[in-house]
Simulated scan of single mutants.
Amino acid sequence: MTSNTESLDVRVVGGGVIGLTSAVALAEDGHRVRVLSRDPADGTTSAVAGGLCWPYRIRPYERAVEWSVRSFQVLAALAERPEETGARMVTGTMTATTDGGGDDGLAAWYDAVPGLRRATAEELPEGCASGWRARTPLVDMPAHLRYLEQRLTAAGGAVERREVTSLEEAGAAADLVVNCSGLGARDLVPDPEVHPVQGQLVVVENPGIEEWYVSAGAGATDTTYLLPQPYGLVLGGTAREHAWSREPDPAVAEAIVARCAQRFPELARARVLAHKVGLRPARPAVRLAVERLSGGVPCLHNYGHGGGGVTVAWGCADEVLRMVRAVQEDRGPVRR
């Protein structure tokens, strides 16, 4: 899509899925975009993510569902080219909504997912009273991040590997800054409400499991999920608030495999390929807002997506695009 407004020099801080998706949207709208990221894409939290498109540990619910529906549409289209984009459509079972029960604020999500239905008793594990069956995008995140970088480059954008010490520094030679720094926003903004939710997972050789499976209760520290990816079967997981360690815990890994093996006994003998830990950038609510930095440059904040980054990335990128146009028209709200 081509913008009818003036092209801007934009600096996007953060090279994870939120930053790259925002950058692609802006570059394809005609802006001159440079992503500033300390880490390569495969070194970001996004690269560790399981990649299932489903709202998880993200608020506010109503807006998160709108963003998720938009991302579902985009990822479903990208799934027509899985080898290029890393996105595939995969059927699976959600045995419990991620935030508990039928009144979880996700009703609009259930209505929007094509073909989603209640699981039958035969499709649910023993002891589980309810769940959902759906065919949703499942994203190979390292491959998808590479695709986004290539798409950005094709649109005239670029990625620069360097650490950003302040948003003012990022905006020194730019017309506008988009802050997609994730957990880094805690210090960079600074925003003390940003905190990690540690997630540990185990990648094993896939014994032939073709569907995804998730069981995650409201606010649960330990969850159970299986996500078949091209590089192996991803087993999870954990969701530990304010835990900062990125080192895999052998005892936690053993417990993850044991939980998954209760559902699929063959996993008890599966060869382990990798252990991974990621820190979800959580916040009481996603921050999508505009403020002016001390030098007067507008800064669009887009962070705090918790465990829902890939699920909401394209919806949030649309919001960023609208906010940029509003700033250009000098009618965007400035909030601090």
Rank of each mutant, 00 (worst) to 15 (best):
G208E: 12
G19C: 12
A282Q: 09
D222T: 04
G295N: 13
L293D: 00
S46A: 13
Y231K: 01
L152A: 06
P190N: 07
D191H: 10
R259F: 03
H301V: 06
R335M: 07
D187G: 14
P40M: 00
M89L: 15
R70N: 12
R322H: 05
R88S: 14
V69F: 01
L235E: 03
R133K: 13
G182Y: 05
I58T: 13
R287I: 08
G171R: 04
L8H: 05
A134E: 11
P333V: 08
P114T: 07
V177R: 00
L167H: 03
T44V: 12
E123V: 01
V297I: 09
E247L: 09
R59S: 11
R11I: 09
M1H: 07
A129R: 15
A64C: 14
D175I: 02
L138W: 04
T224E: 10
A174K: 08
G296F: 01
V164T: 07
R325N: 14
R336C: 09
A129N: 14
V214T: 03
G100W: 01
Y147V: 13
F264K: 05
P284R: 04
G16N: 06
H31N: 10
T44Y: 07
T238A: 07
G232I: 05
G208N: 15
N302W: 00
P137Q: 11
R325K: 15
E123P: 04
G19W: 13
G304Y: 01
P142N: 14
P250K: 07
R331Y: 08
E122A: 11
V90Q: 15
T136I: 13
L279T: 04
E291F: 01
I209W: 12
A317L: 12
G304R: 02
V204G: 03
R325E: 15
V69P: 08
G156D: 13
W244S: 01
I209V: 15
A289L: 07
K276S: 13
R331D: 15
S181V: 02
A158G: 15
A289R: 14
M89V: 05
S68V: 10
G208M: 09
E291N: 05
A285L: 04
S294Q: 07
V17G: 00
G43R: 08
R280P: 02
G306A: 10
R186W: 09
A173H: 11
R331T: 14
C299N: 09
P60Q: 11
D42K: 02
R283E: 00
R269V: 07
D191E: 12
